[in-house]
Amino acid sequence: MKSAVVVFPGINRERDMARTLKLVSGTEPSMVWHADTALPAGTDLVVVPGGFSYGDYLRCGAIAARAPIMDAVRAHAGRGGLVLGVCNGFQILCESGLLPGVLMRNAALRFICKDVYLRVERSDTPFTRGYNAGQVIRVPLAHGEGNYVADSETVARLEGDGRVAFRYVAPDGKLDPRWNINGATNAIAGILSERGNVLGLMPHPENHVEGAIGPTDGRGLFAGLTQHFAKVA
């Protein structure tokens, strides 16, 4: 799997992401600078990592969405290429028009860093094939603005088309407002694009991949992607 991690000024989880991609897929990703206009030839997967691109000063992801490299990312997605956005990356993909909706401030109006439980809603996508549908995974999140909001029509379409990939749930897998950590609409933690080739999610699976450090539930996402490209190739 040939992956490219996009680096905007102020992004700060690019090292975590690169390390995990290397660890799980065995291949070092390319780091792509925001001012570049092209992705490395043969890129399979584009990852927009977490952080605070441009300080999140205007609106999370709004400035990064207009960076030169994003045209290349949009083109890659347009060709059906895979794009993964995590945390600030999810916000950037929403602002770029690659995913619908927006991430608002957490309902409690505070930054939250803690492990949460996600239910994997489907396992038939390149991003989630490493999991079973209905499986509950434990991954950390760290954000101040992860409260997913879209107009009711969009939400209905997302739900109807099965484009909700991950949902915040209680440890037993049941929906529970107490476990919907940021107050997201329908407890949405991650969504897919219409063609299913773009995934955005707020939590950080890349931080839960090493048994020696903690839980490894994040590994499935990267292992699944690696398998996907091994098969494609």
Partner: peptide
């Protein structure tokens, strides 16, 4: 309220 897991 502090990100204590970044850097892995």
């Amino acid at each position: 309220q502090y990100d204590h897991v970044i850097l892995g």
